[in-house]
Design a protein around this nucleic acid. Sequence first.
DNA 1: TCATAAGCGAGACGGTACGTCTGGTCTTTCA
DNA 2: TGAAAGACCAGACGTACCGTCTCGCTTATGA
Lengths: 225, 225, 225, 225
Amino acid sequence: MAAQKPTRSPRPAPAPAAPAPAAGKPHPDAARRSQRSRQAIYEAALALVGEVGYPKTTIEGIAARAGVGKQTIYRWWSSKADVLLEAFLDLGERLVENAGEEAYAIPDTGDVAADLKFTLRSTVDELRDPRFEAPYRALAAEGVVNEQLGRTFVARLLEPSLQLHADRLRAAQEAGQVRQGIDLRIALELFVSPLAQRWLQHTGPYTHAYTDTLVDYALHGLAPR
Amino acid sequence: MAAQKPTRSPRPAPAPAAPAPAAGKPHPDAARRSQRSRQAIYEAALALVGEVGYPKTTIEGIAARAGVGKQTIYRWWSSKADVLLEAFLDLGERLVENAGEEAYAIPDTGDVAADLKFTLRSTVDELRDPRFEAPYRALAAEGVVNEQLGRTFVARLLEPSLQLHADRLRAAQEAGQVRQGIDLRIALELFVSPLAQRWLQHTGPYTHAYTDTLVDYALHGLAPR
Amino acid sequence: MAAQKPTRSPRPAPAPAAPAPAAGKPHPDAARRSQRSRQAIYEAALALVGEVGYPKTTIEGIAARAGVGKQTIYRWWSSKADVLLEAFLDLGERLVENAGEEAYAIPDTGDVAADLKFTLRSTVDELRDPRFEAPYRALAAEGVVNEQLGRTFVARLLEPSLQLHADRLRAAQEAGQVRQGIDLRIALELFVSPLAQRWLQHTGPYTHAYTDTLVDYALHGLAPR
Amino acid sequence: MAAQKPTRSPRPAPAPAAPAPAAGKPHPDAARRSQRSRQAIYEAALALVGEVGYPKTTIEGIAARAGVGKQTIYRWWSSKADVLLEAFLDLGERLVENAGEEAYAIPDTGDVAADLKFTLRSTVDELRDPRFEAPYRALAAEGVVNEQLGRTFVARLLEPSLQLHADRLRAAQEAGQVRQGIDLRIALELFVSPLAQRWLQHTGPYTHAYTDTLVDYALHGLAPR
DNA sequence: TCATAAGCGAGACGGTACGTCTGGTCTTTCA
DNA sequence: TGAAAGACCAGACGTACCGTCTCGCTTATGA
């Protein structure tokens, strides 16, 4: 579904002093990189996307706001989308650090339906968080049209969250609450994708009641019993 | 799923000489509008998006290719996305005219599962159609970020198709193949949205086997029986 | 000097219903021409040049202000300068009609110096008249660069005035106040051109004292010895 | 008369690497300015004015011909006229450098009339020089209508030449060939302005014979009695 | 320890496209 | 059939950014 929890994954120490760049940046000496500039660029990028929107956010604008030369951006990133993607990942990491790991885990009370409903409700809340909305939409939109960025977006932002859903479903399967033989990656899409689509494409409202219904329909199917 | 068949709906003659503009263009005298220019602009826009991609498609480029003054575009449309949306709608209408009405209907053989699988398979095929891919992605991406356009996109492109799915589900419900009390608009998202998301966000492959599975899971649920 | 008196010439009945166009306009039937539109165009042109200056005066602006279609201007004139030239000539004619013929004549009191000083002083006053300044400068400037218009400008606006100066000098010559053999057309330039240049090119102030001095210097040169 | 010799003045080395701009351009860092671009722009501007005329010379055209971005022109100049003025001044300077200083001085043989006739004859020749004609007329015309540019035009192009004439007249005055008390700045206009007007306004031919006559008429007026 | 070479802020540069404005032409509708 | 209206093709306007390219100036080793 729609990247509920940016990088809620365990993240085995991405070493902030030398984080692997999102896409391979070749030449410069990363050891001498200015962390001050980097953080300023992240903040400027997120702020501008929030204030004026993604299309009106420009590299020049980010550089000016960050008090940085344009070349410093072009040296380390290949595009506006690339900057924003890293800035957003960085934001997610910082929020996670402040929140604690398990805050983003899917609970396992033994009641799959309740656990999934709870998790989807908090996803809905997150999608409404104004800090996330603008950059997240921007990145999603860019990913629709730019497959390379889209795949990075999915791998870095969506995948960890989806994996948690799959894990929870596996536990349910082992507990006999989900049929054997079900493809869990497809199964989770039954409730995750509809929410994602409503959010991405404005095809309808996304409320707690809606996600509750999704979980019910998905878990029990549409057929009469 | 995602706008399989642009305007496959019955369309009770929208009078091609005076089609309601997608977004209200107030000022100029529509009666004096040059249809030659309009068609040339549609063709140029679709061709350019296909050839160089949406971001490198420019209004100047469209005007030049269409042999039209820039002002003629700005007079009638408010943005590149707006032009492309109308061009795409027009393309859909022209294809529908050539195909015949029932080509886009969802069959009703009495077997919901089979009918939905058949329809989703053809949706998959359509999503691979190179004439649609580029402009359709571009519009979807724009709609993610631009709510106004997004809503028009949904209303004009997605909605007619979604309505057909809802209708087929209603027939199934009346035939006792779908539980009473189910919200059909939500129900159809169980199989339509996952395909949409895989296509939009490159979260996974979209094959006939995949959509068949979706229909099965959605109709029967995940729970053991 | 510089077109002091626009068309103070006798003007043998320019028949307002069919006045010969300044420069040959070929095709249309002048007999059916709308005098209302013509006058409105004249007024709009002069007003706009006065208000926003010549470069920002546009044919579209004139047409809009005159409540006239653009084609009505293009039908009867070949350029913006052409419109303004005729408008200015028309203005001159109307002012002359209100003033009476002899108002613009050069007096002959028997004292050439006094008569010329008087005339040049009133020329200076005229050059400062805000109704004339803007359009007159605009036409002069256009004439510098556009020889065809320049010659028309000279013939219609400057020549009549220059001829009066030549006439007055001839009378002085016959009265023995100017040397025999002097080329009167050159002679008059001695006092007329310096004023013209100061006004046109901002090479210096143009005051009554200045023109008085010019007449003195020049007449001394022309006097018999 | 009108700007015979652009900047024939002594010019004590204006340091070509940092020449004072004609009109103060405040903002950008002049030290980093590209001299290559600057010269290319000068040449393109002069060439275009010569080839297609001033009104059809566009900033885009100059930029394209000079192989320069438009912004590079807008960065350093405020208008087309401004570019041309500096280009023309630069041309004058380069020609002066190739010609040697005294080539433009007014000779002093002791015979004022002869010296002035000689100088005016060479001014006439210069006015016919096709390298000067087009840009010079264009600038003069612009200056008629744009007082700010006009004053710069006079100060940078006309004034040096006029000063030489005044100097020569002063020498004549000291030699007793010109009356005491004569205002030399006005005196020189007696022969300079008529030529200027004939050239500017096409009021008549400008020949060597004509300027000889002017000098005769004027000097008679200025002679002691 | 200090040169030396990188990253850095700054911003000029050659470009492209923007959205607007006007020039001239052409067409429609009316009187 | 002249005129008002205004859509049309064309293309220049002046602005905004793009991505590249110097400039000095830190600044952090490594000889």
